[in-house]
């Protein structure tokens, strides 16, 4: 049996034919759509490397059965930058060395985008650290990650202020 999966990925509607119901959203993105920016770490929801936004909410793509999210809007790391202009969270990770090897970085950045949209951590570093606890970094770039999230929060609220 073939399943027709409809997803809007980074603003583009896509129809994906699945011959197997077991495929996770993570495997759809990486293996079927060719968006390999989203990483597979533990594949069990423990490391956060596969974090994407599903209908604006950050989730672990490895524990999302693709068929269950038929019709959803997905944002991955590839959908953040506008052309050559980095998203403020991406720019802040570069500015603050929020990574070393970089493997966890797409998940960290997507999680941070979700965290900032939730609007609960604000500029409290403890709340940022707690809110980012679903993303592990084996290189332990946590200090830089926290700084990057705080700066991106400031930058994005300033941008909001100017555009309002």
């Amino acid at each position: 049996m073939t399943f027709n999966l409809n997803l809007t990925i980074n603003g583009t509607a896509q129809q994906i034919a699945l011959d197997d119901p077991r495929v996770t959203l993570l495997d759809v993105l990486r293996e079927r759509v060719g968006l390999t920016g989203t990483k597979k770490g533990c594949d069990r929801g423990q490391c956060g490397a596969c974090t994407v936004l599903i209908d604006g909410q950050r989730m672990n793509a490895c524990l999302a059965l693709a068929l269950s999210y038929d019709g959803a809007e997905i944002t991955t790391i590839e959908g953040l930058a506008k052309g050559e202009t980095l998203h403020p969270v991406q720019a802040a990770f570069v500015a603050h060395d929020g990574f070393q090897c970089g493997y966890c970085t797409p998940g960290q950045i997507m999680s941070a985008v979700g965290l900032i949209a939730e609007g609960e951590a604000g500029l409290d570093p403890e709340r940022v650290r707690e809110g980012m606890s679903g993303n592990l970094c084996r290189c332990a770039a946590y200090a830089g990650i926290t700084e990057a999230v705080l700066e991106a929060t400031r930058e994005m609220s300033a941008q909001e202020g100017t555009s309002a």
Partner: peptide, 9 residues
């Protein structure tokens, strides 16, 4: 409990 990502799901 869990992480923000898991609580969202």
């Amino acid at each position: 409990g869990a992480s923000a990502q898991l609580r969202n799901a």
